[in-house]
Each structure stands twice: as structure tokens, then as C-alpha cells.
Design a protein around this nucleic acid. Structure first.
Lengths: 200, 200, 200, 200
DNA sequence: GATGAATGAGAATTCATTCAT
DNA sequence: AATGAATGAATTCTCATTCAT
């Protein structure tokens, strides 16, 4: 079993990356040990040198996702930023990340794929909920500072922002990654800013 | 092959309902002919008297979803409603529907599940995009009438609304359908109303 | 069980004919109750009103073949014909028959198709061997009258004649029944005549 | 997919041999993956490590048959042989081969068995037609040299010879391989020789 | 580390046959 | 007579996993 704290070997990283892109390209049903081994150029048996089971590989994938939480927290804790700036950089950080790793973007928004295993399922929900929570806490901060509208529900606003991100990313994927995701992110931000800011 | 226009027999409806709730409860991987037959109390072979293949059943499921499009259009075309009222009834209609058919709600927001088959995949994307488009067209209407903020992107707003709906429904499911979805819908509407309305 | 002596009903005949042409067109693997019923426009269950089992249908097919034995015997016993004339009319009778019922021709030469069931297997071998025997007895007759070469083996000659017939018919079928089988039969007869006749 | 040019592994050869004898003993309907695996003492799944599909196995069988073409061509090209000698050695070579591999003999003459798949069907027809053509070309050679009767049709003669071979082999099989096929071959040759040779 | 053969469980599907209506 | 639903066995094939080399 790959412990979360354990550093991954090069081979393990390679396998996880291959698994992610396999899912991103063709869906979870194509993530078979055979396809995975084929993609890397290993035999099927060899995979088991590096992961004790397929489930273990899926865990590895989700651990990878979890790592990106660190970036979020860094932003959240930059005290020199206003809530508005925080919100913006958070959003842009996410879109940058997804543009850089489209395969991960495809997979991270497909929670349902992991429904089979209880542990995996709660794992990915954690990740999604954490992202929402980060947004919510910034919004609350902004509301308490009086720069964001106080009458709206921060929780709902969190849902709206992460939901919109998901829709944008998945449509981007559906369109074959054919345009700049960053620009979509800027458009999203513009609208959020207008919506959320308290009239001064 | 089950034609879209064909009326389904009772058995076919029964099978599709069983399939939807199987997916909702345990995920698409549990949708096997064996489980399906077991759930209904039939032999595996018997399923094939009613659907020519498993794919055909999945088509049947998606057709069921598509039918709910009709409700949306009915609202869209109620000319005596203001855009604001339209938006509200649309939202509530959806939440009512999902509360009534939680299994469908679980499945309809899991586009990725159908990625295996190209036809199914585009089918479900159609359904999702259609819902977004309906929201967008109402928002545009409201903007042109000057009652919704003109500076925001209607498309983005559509993404935010459907995205929020999805997040709410999935969290509701994740929490075991333990509270009223309707109330969540009302909360969502309250926030949307505040955000979108032009200050008079 | 359909007794051999029993007269077939119209429906039974219809079913057997459909079965034969199904085999002729697409091979024995396509002879399923479903296909058969579909070809006639009946339900699958209905077939069992007329035959107690699929095996029974196959028996019916072979009985049909067996009936054509009668024609052969009639020729064999025409005492006013010389062995040479008998041989010729026998040959032509067969080619006429096959040209008229190409489906039967396709099937009767495919003994192997019936290998599954011991009874059917010996049945069809009977038919084939009977045909060979008829040829052999005529050849022997001709040899004893001194008009056919005495040094050749009548049995081998029988093999050669029926074997050639089979090859001609199957190639004819392979070529899509696109030319006259009768002409091929004449060519065959011309060669046989030359080969077999004693120089006078 | 097993390429024709690819050397087969030991296991592949073993599987193909088992398949051929299974067909020979009990007919094509008994050639199931289960029976095949059972005969070799493997699990069903294991078969698929060596052949990608059942069709692939059937291709393998036919490739085996095709290889015996080489022997025929070798005889055809022995320039020091007279047409008469060529014909004789060809015939004997075939009977030797069939006596050595009775299973193959059973199968090679059952073209109809492979009718299911278009490719297989044309494949086996190729093999049969090739054998006929080899006989025809030798007969034509003999006719042009004036040692075979010129008035007979070489094509028909080819049909007669291969047809007789088939009848002899299948009767031999039907009789449980209980006598020497070689002797039958000699009898056939004696008759052919008498029939075909020009009186000097 | 890596390979390749093997396994056993399970998947979708087909088929002959039965039976209530 | 005929239908339509149902069954149970069989079939091809896939997959995660194991293990000797």
C-alpha cells in the first residue's frame, strides 16, 4: 500500500501519470492494467511491482490531486492580499493548473468515477469540498470586511463558483482543449467581481 | 433498438427505472445485466427480450432524461411570466424534479459515466448544454429588458447556476438525501436574485 | 416427432423450406429458431406447434432429400434404357434437380453440417452413399455388358462421378449461381462418356 | 492477430492441433473455447493469451492447411518427372498426408464449416481450388504432350480426381479410419491411369 | 525489477425450449 | 394455432491478480 506520506518512485509517478491520462482520454473503463502496462511499455505483471493493486493506483491518483491543495492554502494565507485579490488569484491559480494538466482537470471533476470504492469516494469528495470551503472562507472574509455583498449566502456563492469552473473546464475539454482556458477564467472572474462586490 | 419515439412497454419502463436506481445507488459499474435482472426478479436472458443490448438500455435511460426537457421548454414559453419569474420557476421545477426522482438526479449530473460510447456521450452533453442554454436565453431576455445586470456574461451566469445546482444536488446525495432539496433551491434562488438583479 | 411416413402439413413444409434456404444462404449456424420464425413471419413459440424440436426440423430436411431418391430408382429400373443412357439420364436428372432447388443442392453436399447428431449424420451419409451406389450399379451393369471399360473399379468411378458433381455444384454456388448448371452437366457427361466407354 | 508469416509458438501449435482434432472428432460445433481449453488442460482465459479470438484460432487452422500447398508445388516443379508420374506422386503425396493427419483430412474437406466468416470461407475455397488447379495444370501438360486423352476436359477431370479423393477420405473417416488409405489411393490411381492415358 | 503464462470470476449475449394466455 | 414472456445453459471474451523464472 502506498502511504500518502511516502515519496513515490519515478516508476510509480510514471504509472500514475499514465493512468490519469488514460482516464482523461478514454474514460475510467479504459483504465485496465493491460492498457496501463501497454501505455508505459511494461508487462502487466510488472505493474504489481510498483503498486499492490489497481485500487492502490487509484489512491495514488487521488493523492496527486490532493497535493494541489497546498497551492490553495498558500494563497489563502497570504495576508497581504485583500479578499478580492485572494479570490482572483485562487481562481487563476486553478485555471492555470488545469490548463497545465488537462488530464487532471478531466478527472478531478468526475467524482462519480470513483464511486465504486467507499474510501476513494470520500477521498475525492474531500478534495472537492475543500476547494469549495476555501472559496467560502474567502467570501466570508470579504463579507465581514464589507467589500462583498452581505446578503448573499457564502456557501451558495462557493457552489456557484466551483460549479462554473467545472462547467467551463468540461466544456473546454468537450471542445477538444481548442482554446485558451485562461481567457475563460478571466471572463469568469469579471462576472464574479461584478456580482459579488458591494456597491461603494 | 428502442426508438426515441416508440412508447415503452411496462417492462421496459421497469427495467429502465431499475437501471437508473442501480446506477444511483451503486454507480455505473454495478449496472450489469445480472444485477439488473436480479433487481427485477428476472433471468438475465429475459432482459434481452425487452432491450436488444445493454447499450440500448442506456439509450433508454437517456431518453427518459431528455423527456424532462419538455418541462423546461414549457416554462420558457410562458409569455405571461417576467424573466425573473421564469428563472425562478425554472429553478424550482428542476429541484422539484430532482427531489422527486433522486436517482435520476444522481445520474444526470454524472456525464462522465457515459463516456464509453460516443453516441451516449454526445447525447448527455446535449441534455446538459440544453439546460444551460435555457438559462442563458432567459438571462439574455432579462438583460435586454434591463432588469438583469447588463455587464455580466449571460453564458457565465448560466454556468454558475447549473454548476451550483449540480453541487447542491450532489452534496444532498452525499448527505444521504437527508434534508429537503427544495429549501436548498430556495436559498440558491435568493442569492441568484440578489446577484443578478439590476439596482433600480 | 415427425414420422417419415407422415404427410407433412403445409406449415411444416413451409418451415422446412425456409430452413433449407436459411442454411443454403448463410450456413447452418444461421439456422436458429429465431431466424426461422422471422423468415416465415411466425413467433418462435409457434414453430413448436409444428415441430417438437429443432432436431425434428433437421430430420424433416433430410426426409425431403431422401424423397429425391425415388427419382433415381425410377431411372435405374427403366429397362428399356442402356446402361449408358441410364448413366446419362441419372446425371441430368440430378443436375436438373439441383438447378431447380439450389438451396437443396447447397445443403445436400454439406454432410459435415449434420455431424452433431449421430442419427442425422448416418441419415445423410445414407443419402450420399445411396447415390454413389446407384451409379456403381449402373457402371457394373455396363461393364458386364461390355460397353464400359472392365479394368476400372466401378466403386472408384462412382466416387469420381459424384465427387465431380459435388465440385461442380459447389463452384456454381460459389460463383453465385451465375451460369447454367445444365451446361456444366453436359460437359461432365461428355468427359465421362469418353473415359468410360470401351473402345469398340 | 496471428500473422501468416509469424512463426507459431509451441502453445499456439498445441492449441491449433487440439482444435483440429476436436473438429475432426466431434464437428465444428464442439470447437468451443471451453472444450479446447479442457482438452489442453488450460483455463479458458489462458487461450486468449495465445490467440486474440476464436476467429484467430480458425485462421491458424487454415494457415496450417495452406502450408501443405508447398508440397504440391514442389512436385509440380519437378522437371524430371513425366506428367503421368507427376499426377501419381501428387495423388500419393495427398493420401500420405491425409493418412498421417486424419484430423486435417476430416476438416479440409468440410469447406462448409467455415462459411460463417467471409474471410475464412474464401480462404478455404482458395485452398481447395488451388488443389484442383494443380491437377488441371498437370493434365493439360499431359494432353499437350499427347500422353493424356485430348478430347476430355482437363477441368472436369480435375473435378473428378479431387472429388474422388474427397469421397474416399470421408468414407475412410466414416469407417473409423479402419483400413489403409494408401491402398485406396493406389486403387484410385490405377483407375485414373486407365481412364486418362491415350491408347498408344 | 521485469516477463509471460496462467487463473478464476464475471461480463454480455444467444439459443432451444416451455408455458400461460 | 399463435403469441410473447420467460428460463437456464452455454458461449465468447475481459480483467485483476499471481507466480515461476
Amino acid at each position: 500500500m502506498v502511504k500518502e506520506t511516502t515519496k513515490l518512485t519515478d516508476r510509480q509517478r510514471e504509472i500514475i501519470e499514465a493512468a490519469i491520462s488514460l482516464i482523461a482520454e478514454k474514460g475510467i473503463q479504459e483504465l485496465t492494467i493491460k492498457n496501463l502496462a501497454g501505455k508505459i511499455g511494461l508487462s502487466e505483471g510488472a505493474i504489481y511491482r510498483h503498486f499492490s493493486s489497481k485500487l492502490d493506483i487509484l489512491h495514488g491518483i487521488l493523492s496527486t490531486f490532493k497535493k494541489s491543495k497546498v497551492n490553495l492554502l498558500a494563497i489563502l494565507n497570504k495576508n497581504n492580499l485583500t479578499p478580492c485579490e485572494k479570490l482572483k488569484s485562487l481562481l487563476f491559480e486553478r485555471f492555470d493548473y488545469f490548463e497545465k494538466y488537462p488530464a487532471i482537470a478531466s478527472v478531478i471533476f468526475s467524482e462519480e468515477l470513483f464511486r465504486n470504492d467507499a474510501e476513494l469516494s470520500s477521498y475525492i469528495h474531500d478534495i472537492m469540498f475543500f476547494m469549495q470551503d476555501v472559496f467560502v472562507s474567502i467570501i466570508l472574509e470579504g463579507q465581514s470586511e464589507g467589500i462583498f455583498k452581505r446578503e448573499i449566502s457564502a456557501k451558495i456563492m462557493g457552489y456557484m463558483i466551483t460549479g462554473a469552473m467545472r462547467n467551463i473546464v468540461l466544456r473546454w475539454k468537450h471542445d477538444g482543449f481548442s482554446y485558451s482556458l485562461k481567457k475563460e477564467g478571466e471572463e469568469l472572474w469579471k462576472t464574479i467581481e461584478i456580482l459579488i462586490k458591494e456597491e461603494s
